[in-house]
Computed example of a mutant assay.
Amino acid sequence: MVGFGYRMPDHYEVGREKVREFATAVQNTHPAHYDETAAHALGHPALVAPPTFVAVIGLIAQRFLLEQIVTGFDLSQILQTDQRLIFHRPMYAGDRLTVDVCLASFRHTGGIDIFVTETDVTDDTGAPVVTTLTTFVGRTGDADPDRLRRIRDVMMRGAAPGPHP
């Protein structure tokens, strides 16, 4: 499967209000994310999406990969361990983005699978916007209930042992 790639079947249109909502959610208060006049004053053609906005698009593409292509993983048992973002230009409100995803590498070691995806986001002219290289670690098959309980304990109680509702 290494080298397998696909294009998401539809483009993603960056919405003006989505840019504002995302900026608020990540507590990025820069005026260029909220006010078109401020964005224009900085030389941008529209509201500028925060750099991490690519996660919105990436989530859609990665989910498709994990549910339709690299199957057999319990999505709750996959951990993103690394990500490299290469920005070619900012994302703007009104951009119509196309997403191409490729399984860049895959290896099985010590009972776990480690794989890297490369995601290329381009605008409607085909010009690159952002490229991401994301590393995931996961296990196929059924999850160990005891391990899940220990993980939940750490996540929900800050490592406090014991039962949870």
Rank of each mutant, 00 (worst) to 15 (best):
Q68F: 00
P45L: 08
D82S: 04
G126S: 05
L66Y: 12
T71P: 09
V154H: 12
G158W: 03
P161D: 09
T29E: 15
I114W: 10
G111M: 02
M91I: 10
D113E: 06
P128R: 11
L133E: 00
H108Y: 12
H88I: 07
P90V: 00
D146W: 05
D142E: 15
A55L: 08
T81I: 13
D120Y: 06
P31L: 13
T98M: 09
Y12T: 00
G158E: 05
H88V: 09
R20K: 15
F22I: 09
T71N: 10
Y6Q: 07
A46I: 05
E17M: 05
H108T: 15
A39C: 03
T117D: 07
A143G: 10
T109D: 14
Y92E: 04
T81H: 07
H164Q: 12
L97D: 03
L47Q: 05
A160W: 04
R139W: 02
G5K: 15
D95L: 08
H88K: 11
P9D: 09
R107C: 08
D10W: 13
L148Y: 03
T52S: 04
M155E: 11
P51A: 10
D120G: 08
D123Y: 10
I114T: 14
A39R: 01
T134V: 08
A143F: 00
L97F: 01
R20N: 04
E67H: 14
P51T: 12
P90D: 00
L103G: 01
E17C: 02
T125H: 11
T135L: 01
P45W: 03
V56D: 09
T81D: 07
M91R: 06
F115P: 01
L79F: 06
D144G: 07
P31G: 09
S105V: 11
D100N: 14
A55V: 10
T132H: 15
T125Y: 02
T122G: 13
L79N: 01
F115L: 06
R16Y: 07
S76F: 11
E118F: 02
V99L: 13
P163D: 11
T119F: 02
P165Q: 07
G158A: 02
G162Y: 09
V14T: 04
Q62I: 11
D144A: 05
A49L: 01
V48I: 08
